[in-house]
Write a protein that binds this DNA or RNA. Structure first.
Lengths: 150, 150
DNA sequence: TCCTGTTGTTTAGTTTCTAAACAACATTAT
DNA sequence: ATAATGTTGTTTAGAAACTAAACAACAGGA
C-alpha cells in the first residue's frame, strides 16, 4: 500500500531526471547541455558568484565547474570580472545568458502555478503532513549519506 | 511559501541523486557501479527478463543494457539462458547476484519502515492529498515531456 | 626569502549513455 | 526456394559530465 506511494515517488524522480537529460536552446542561438543550464541557473540565482562557491552550491568539484564555465564563456553566456577577494573571479550572466536563464525559469512556471493552487486548496493538517513527510525523507537520506548506506 | 516546499523537494531529489552516484560492494567481492546495481535491481524484481524488456523498464537503449549486462556477466552476477521467444535470451541473477540484490534492498528498508509508519499515522484526507499532489506533479512532467518543455 | 594557503585551470581517465551498423535467426511474401 | 522483413541482441565510435591530481598565480606571514 504505502509501498506503492514510494514506487510512484521513485517513478516521478526518474521522469524528472530523464527530462533533465536533453539539451535545449532556451531562446538563444546555441544549444545548452544540462550541466550548462544548471550552472546558468546557479549564476542567475546569485550573480557575481565565484567558481568555488558554484562548486559548493552545485555539489561538484571546482575542476568540473571550471570546465562548464569555460564552455559557457565560449558560447557568450557569461562574463568574468575581478572579484574583491584574493585571486577571486566574479562570474555573471551576459544579456544572452540572462535570456537563457529567464527562458528556463519560464518553463517551470506552469508547474509552479499548479502547485501553488494545490497548496492553497488543502487544509492546514494536510499541509503539515506533507512537510512532515519531506522531513522524514530528508532525515533518512541524511542517515544513508552518513552511514554510507545505499 | 509553497515555493519553499518546491525548493525542498528539489533539494531532496538532488540529495537522492548524489547518493545514487557512488559505487558500493553490496555484500559481494566486486565493486558495483550505479548503472550495474540498477540493472541488478531490475532483474531481481522480474527474473528471466530479456535485454529488450530491461531497456524498456529502465528507459535506456538496448545497446546500453547490453554493455552493462556484459559487465555483470563478467563479474559473475548474472546468468543467461535460452528464452521462449525468437532469439530471446533470459537473464537471471546468480547466487552472487541475489546477494547484491538483497543487500541493496535491505538498505532501503529503513526508509520504507519510516514511511510505512508515517502513512499509518495520518488521516485519510492528508493521505488523499499527498496522492493528489503526486498526481499533479506527474501530469505536469508528462506535459513538459510532450511539449518538449524544459 | 621561503613557506603556506587560497584561487582558478588543465589534463588524463572513468562512467554511462546514444546512435548506428551489424549478425543471427524466424516469418512472410513472391 | 529465394528474397524481403522483422525481431533479437551485440559491437563500435563518440559524446557528456564528472573526478582526482598536478599545476600556476598570487597574497600573507614566519
Amino acid at each position: 500500500m504505502e509501498n506503492e506511494i514510494l514506487q510512484v515517488g521513485m517513478r516521478l524522480i526518474n521522469k524528472y531526471n530523464n527530462l533533465n537529460k536533453k539539451a535545449h536552446y532556451y531562446g538563444v542561438d546555441v544549444l545548452l547541455y544540462p550541466s550548462e543550464i544548471h550552472v546558468i541557473e546557479a549564476i542567475g540565482d546569485n550573480n557575481d558568484v565565484t567558481t568555488t562557491k558554484l562548486a559548493m552550491n552545485l555539489g561538484i568539484t571546482k575542476g568540473g565547474i571550471s570546465q562548464t564555465v569555460s564552455k559557457l564563456y565560449g558560447k557568450g553566456l557569461i562574463d568574468k570580472s575581478v572579484g574583491s577577494g584574493i585571486n577571486e573571479v566574479y562570474i555573471s550572466l551576459t544579456k544572452k545568458g540572462l535570456v537563457a536563464y529567464e527562458e528556463h525559469k519560464k518553463l517551470h512556471n506552469a508547474m509552479n502555478s499548479r502547485l501553488s493552487a494545490f497548496f492553497e486548496g488543502i487544509d492546514d493538517k494536510s499541509r503539515d503532513n506533507i512537510i512532515g513527510l519531506m522531513h522524514i525523507i530528508d532525515e533518512e537520506l541524511t542517515r544513508m549519506e552518513e552511514n554510507n548506506d545505499f
